[in-house]
């Protein structure tokens, strides 16, 4: 019963996220479309984190690393393309590119590799130590980006023209929104399939009880590491899109504030709930937009809402709308 209700809630959320920018396009409100695009992209970053945090129980306070890597993958490739300088000449010539699909492949591949390295080290620990070690990696990347003058250092990199996607004019807000929306939909589909797959069954068990997984002859660490890599790759792709939305990359994409915000999306929306990050990101961006206009201390209100959700709605907003999660079949 609640399962069916959650499906309706999810469908309503997607319709809203699609309907508002379409309306804004017709009404000639490009800024609203940009806001919706931001929601879709940040939601996607949250969907990535939710695979590690919600399904696998890995509280990563360093997921901005992957978001930033996706952002800098785009920034570095596009920077070289717009300045007509090769990325590397020896031992082989690598040119920059403005072609989105190539940028995405690079963003996903590099994020996945870094997630493999960070995950392999961090998963030796658990609990608070896992949170701290992922935070430490986040800070390492943040300060590395600040101190790398070739790519703008603290000031970041500006990309003058949005990158290309075949058949689309990406500078038209609604067309770029379409890209972000499709990317979010695909990441949600993947997340849904993973949660129900054989892998997802083992991952959920590894979150609940590692000993149980070992007893049936499966290695819970290996399962969690693979989930961490998938999680990092999705958040990395979202980072590439985010950089393209802003046509700008800066070290703040690596900052622990952003890692924290991704966690807030998930808690607001409902930990482990498929659409949790979408609702959470939507609410966060709306609050930032409307309350941010009233006071620069708008995060106080976010804090109050977060407190309310944690104390009174353990399943987050999705839980409040559609009831307690039922074990899936």
């Amino acid at each position: 019963m609640t399962m069916i209700r959650e499906t309706y809630v999810n469908a309503a959320i997607m319709l809203l996220l699609l309907g508002i920018p379409v309306w804004a396009h017709v009404a000639g409100q490009p800024f609203t479309i940009t806001l919706a695009t931001k929601v879709a992209i940040l939601a996607m970053a949250g969907v990535g984190l939710n695979i590690a945090l919600g399904l696998g129980g890995m509280v990563s306070l360093g997921h901005a690393v992957f978001f930033g890597i996706g952002g800098y993958s785009m920034g570095i490739l596009a920077h070289h393309a717009q300045t007509f300088t090769p990325l590397m000449e020896v031992p082989l010539l690598i040119e920059g590119t403005k072609f989105m699909p190539v940028i995405w492949v690079v963003a996903v591949a590099v994020s996945a590799l870094v997630a493999l390295a960070i995950g392999a080290l961090s998963l030796r620990t658990g609990g608070v130590y896992f949170i701290m070690i992922t935070l430490a990696f986040g800070q390492m990347f943040y300060y590395f980006a600040i101190s790398w003058p070739a790519y703008g250092g603290e000031d970041g990199l500006s990309i003058f023209v949005r990158n290309d996607f075949p058949g689309l004019n990406t500078l038209v807000p609604i067309q770029f929104f379409a890209i972000a929306f499709v990317a979010l939909s695909l990441s949600l589909t993947l997340s849904h399939l993973i949660a129900r797959s054989r892998f997802g069954l083992a991952l959920g068990a590894a979150r609940q009880n590692a000993e149980r997984v070992q007893t049936v002859g499966l290695d819970p660490m290996r399962v969690k590491l693979v989930a961490f890599v998938i999680s990092g790759a999705i958040t990395g792709l979202a980072g590439a899109l985010f950089a393209d939305l802003n046509r700008f990359v800066a070290p703040t994409m690596f900052s622990w504030h952003l890692s924290g915000e991704l966690i807030i999306f998930i808690i607001l929306g409902g930990i482990g709930r498929l659409f949790g990050p979408v609702v959470g990101a939507g609410l966060f961006i709306l609050l930032e937009h409307f309350l941010g206009g009233l006071s620069e201390f708008w995060l106080i209100y976010v804090g109050a809402i977060l407190l309310g959700v944690v104390l009174f709605a353990r399943g987050g907003l999705i839980g409040a709308l559609s009831g307690r999660e039922v074990a899936h079949d």
């Binding site: 129900r196 054989r198 892998f199 997802g200 069954l201 083992a202 049936v216 499966l218 693979v226 899936h328």
Partner: peptide
């Protein structure tokens, strides 16, 4: 689900991401 996890452990095909386990 707990018992299917056992059957999955014996079967070993855990790196399967798209087919529903249940």
């Amino acid at each position: 689900q707990n018992v299917v996890l056992g059957a999955l452990g014996r079967d070993g095909g855990v790196m399967s991401f798209l087919r529903p386990a249940m």
